[in-house]
């Protein structure tokens, strides 16, 4: 039963962005279960709760109050039990610096938030259907930033 849908979590402090995100997944014809958190602290509390279902893909905004996306990324990568989570950075900017840092820290893909709802849907459906096993093996700095 659990294998039928993809578990997705988004941590983003922006209400509109969370709305776009959940709306997009509602319209995408992929069975997903989407959970959103308002910041890094809520996210990490949840992930560290015993017995929960870990997400398949975690979307991380970088700029968040209390605990930033980068801090979450570091904590997650330090804990072996999160090894199977694919981490997508989901940020307004795509500065060289941010891309470099998150790539080094072990994120799987970098998505610059699109400014068009259609594009958003397209990007999100692409990302959640990636064969992460394959993607991770062939990952390099050039294809780290998702181009759309």
């Amino acid at each position: 039963m659990q294998e039928d849908y993809i578990n997705i979590i988004l941590a983003d402090d922006d209400e509109d962005d969370r709305l776009f995100f959940t709306d997009a997944f509602e319209e995408i014809k992929i069975t997903t279960r989407v959970k959103t958190f308002n910041d890094g602290v809520y996210l990490m509390d949840y992930l560290n709760t015993d017995g929960i279902q870990l997400p398949n893909v975690l979307f991380l905004d970088l700029n968040m109050p209390r605990k930033s996306g980068l801090e979450c990324l570091r904590e997650i990568k330090q804990n072996e039990k999160f090894n199977d989570i694919a981490i997508a950075i989901y940020s307004t900017s795509a500065s060289e610096e941010d891309i470099e840092k998150t790539f080094i820290k072990g994120a799987n893909i970098y998505i610059k938030k699109p400014s068009d709802f259609k594009t958003l849907k397209k990007v999100l459906s692409e990302v959640v259907t990636i064969n992460w096993q394959y993607h991770t093996n062939s990952m390099n700095k050039e294809n780290f930033l998702l181009r759309f």
Binding site: D14, T92, P114, S115, F117, K118
Partner: peptide
């Protein structure tokens, strides 16, 4: 400069996204 450009993008992106939704 950086912050302004960076932070300006966010509301703009939302305007554009809402606009695209309106259109669609």
């Amino acid at each position: 400069n950086y912050v302004a450009s960076h932070d300006l993008q966010e509301p703009l992106r939302k305007i554009q996204t809402f606009l695209s939704r309106l259109e669609d």
